[in-house]
């Protein structure tokens, strides 16, 4: 185990995968400038700066992926993905199916999002659910440096296009990272804390908010389980359902806004497949339907806070403390 930041963990994953497979290359605006270590180790053919043109960056990645390379592209901030939407959604996501399986698109698109840098809504927009909705794409959004490394390695080895979102608020947070392989398979959630009364389901930065809330709830005698989704697509339905079947109560928490968000999908899944285990309604705590503000206190308030999670949990537990399921 070594202590390192989320950002360095991603970098280490890139190093290891580029050393392992000569078909892996990385490019983006400032990639060769900012990732000096990669450039030094693998040279200017495999670590490239690009013009400031997200469409062609993503399109080039898709074209290269279909014909033998395994590109990783850095598209910087999530809102810039809007410029790469056609290439990611219409080409990388669809052309495998549309070609009758003649081509695959093993590529990773990296983008940052979330509050923490006061950069405002054109740099900070948690739009990860858009890509969950698009066929052919996979989506990951890790919460810890160890997961960042393990998921990046798995994403690079995957035969499908993977959107890899880095939560800005976590980018420079340190954590323990295992040496060597330590791959985290895509589609596997992690139970961060075990509990029996209530499940908090989250991903990225708000996993830590949930853990803080769980700590506070423990002091009140509420035993809280925290599920970190890690991969948003494919979604680890089994882990979500097993947890909720055990606790009977669920709160889904994310910074992205509520309407048609990942939380809506998780809530629907639970009510479709674990309705008989529910002892209270499912609650979603999310960012508002608003552009993310730059002002620091507003930006922080945008994401769900621990006290709101505690309050929601208390409400669910109080409502059903002595009641057995009525159905």
């Amino acid at each position: 185990m070594t202590q390192m930041t989320f950002h360095d963990a991603v970098d280490q994953a890139l190093h290891e995968e580029m050393a392992r497979d000569s078909r892996v290359l990385m490019f983006g605006e400032g990639t060769a400038t900012k990732r000096k270590g990669l450039l030094k180790a693998f040279g200017p053919q495999r670590v490239r700066n690009t013009p400031l043109a997200e469409g062609i960056i993503a399109g080039t990645a898709a074209g290269a992926a279909a014909t033998g390379l395994r590109p990783v592209v850095d598209l910087l901030f999530a809102p810039f993905l809007c410029f790469a939407m056609d290439e990611l959604v219409n080409s990388a996501g669809k052309l495998r199916y549309m070609s009758g399986g003649q081509f695959s698109f093993p590529m990773v698109a990296l983008a940052m999002t979330g509050g923490g840098w006061s950069v405002g809504a054109q740099h900070n927009h948690n739009l990860e659910a858009w890509f969950v909705h698009a066929p052919g794409l996979k989506v990951v959004m890790p919460a810890t440096p160890a997961d960042a490394k393990g998921l990046m390695k798995a994403a690079i080895r995957d035969e499908n296009p993977v959107l890899f979102f880095v939560d800005i608020g976590l980018a420079f947070a340190p954590g323990e990272v295992p040496e060597g392989e330590a791959l985290i398979p895509l589609g596997q959630a992690a139970v961060r804390r075990e509990g029996t009364d209530l499940t908090l389901i989250s991903y990225a930065k708000t996993v830590h908010t949930c853990l803080a809330a769980a700590e506070a709830l423990a002091a009140e005698g509420v035993s809280t389980e925290v599920v970190d989704l890690r991969t948003l697509k494919p979604l680890d339905e089994a882990t979500i359902l097993a947890s909720v079947r055990k606790t009977g109560r669920a709160v889904v928490v994310h910074e992205a806004s509520r309407l048609c968000g990942v939380g809506a999908e998780v809530a629907a899944l639970i009510s479709e497949q674990a309705f008989d285990a529910l002892r209270a309604p499912i609650i979603r705590l999310t960012g508002p339907d608003a552009p993310a503000p730059a002002s620091y206190p507003l930006e922080q308030a945008f994401a769900p806070q621990a006290d709101a999670i505690v309050a929601a949990a208390q409400q669910l537990v109080a409502r059903t403390l002595e009641a057995a399921p009525i159905w």
Binding site: I56, G59, T60, G63, A64, P71, D86, E87
Partner: peptide, 8 residues
Amino acid sequence: SLAPGVAL
């Protein structure tokens, strides 16, 4: 959009 990648 795809051609440069194929050529790459």
